[in-house]
Design a binder for these strands. Structure first.
Lengths: 205, 205
DNA sequence: ATATGTGAAATCTTTCACAGCG
DNA sequence: CGCTGTGAAAGATTTCACATAT
């Protein structure tokens, strides 16, 4: 009886939340679909329609309570808790991710980091030791972590992804320039910046 | 008379190209919409429809020449040349980007990098000196660069974006956790990883 | 025999416009 | 009166299925 909510709607909720948290930091108590829409470049009707998939969060004639809507969106997105994440690849990007304050501020906590380079294994990044890739499956299994960020070179990415799946990972943020093949119940988001740059250059010249 | 091609199609072309380059590196001379679709999880019909917007690149009964289609896609996306890019923010992420080999391999060349921290200004990252934010508009104007990657903290991002627009930037890859407000002719892609993590946690638990 | 390119159909997404509530 | 929530309409995207070319 549960209707499935389109992925495209889920993808907009974090954007709504980002803007609402911004309003909240600025002390705004109430907003409207109109105001929120103008802040993020999305139509008021679309925001109302999207939110209506999950409940009735507004008051007619009044708008939405900012703190209440923030709380509701956090619950919907399951970010009303702290998620541990694992980083695979301790190169420049992996290290930058491990040290990025923005994850902590939003309830994501880097808990494990792996690399296969003997010169890196054992070294400290922030408060974590870089672990050997040989330890990947047992360590992740033991930790119960479900979310991974993949920053290894393309030729290694598919094999690592398969190990992540074996270890019980269900969500992969993939920085490697390759389409990963994974089971249906594992979600992959490709965030290779080159893809986005190539998209944007279409509109140049 | 030129029909506008939907943005959603443009966004898939870099994915096609990524897979085709992968095939090319493995020596594959020919492929089909079916085979390409299986590699990236997109239907064969959609690939054919997308490509048909730009011309007739295949041969009936035969399929597509991999090197030819790679060349055509590069021309369509305007990546049959080297693009200089500017990085704003020389923190962990900005430095990781400045050193990322993947950009060079795909025709993007970091040419300038800016920060507003006096402790960073003047320091070397790879072959580049970190420049002062005060120099941002004149230096970018002089260079003629059109593409920027924004890795500054959220509170600074909107102001920096406005300066980028003044300096003639037309494409911004935005890592800051905020929706930027820019003129219509400037393209922004938001790549804040927190947005993607929040999207994925919806499907967990 | 095989695989493209493409109208037509099906599906999905967004916008419209207004009843209804505070 | 102002703004939500929502059916219905419009618009966009994807899939189907086949004529056509090699």
């Amino acid at each position: 009886m549960e209707k499935t909510i389109p992925d495209i709607i889920i993808g907009r909720l974090p954007i709504y939340l980002q803007a609402l948290e911004h309003m909240q930091r600025h002390g705004l108590q109430t907003t409207s679909s109109q105001e929120l829409g103008e802040a993020i470049g999305i139509s008021a009707a679309q925001i109302r329609k999207d939110l209506s998939q999950f409940g009735e969060f507004g008051k007619q004639g009044k708008g939405y309570s900012v703190p209440f809507l923030v709380e509701q969106l956090r619950a919907i997105l399951h970010i009303d808790r702290v998620w541990d994440i694992v980083v695979i690849g301790a190169g420049n990007l992996g290290q930058a991710i491990a040290n990025y304050q923005g994850f902590r501020d939003h309830g994501f906590q880097v808990a494990l980091i792996f690399d296969n380079d003997p010169l890196r294994i054992g070294h400290q990044i922030g408060e974590f030791q870089i672990l050997s890739m040989d330890e990947l499956v047992p360590q992740i299994e033991k930790s119960g972590i479900k979310v991974a960020m993949l920053t290894v070179p393309a030729p290694a990415a598919q094999e690592v992804a398969e190990n992540l799946v074996k270890a019980g990972i269900k969500s992969i943020l993939n920085y490697a320039p390759i389409t990963l093949s994974v089971p249906e119940d594992v979600h992959v988001q490709n965030v290779d910046p080159v893809l986005y740059l190539q998209w944007m250059t279409y509109y140049l010249e």
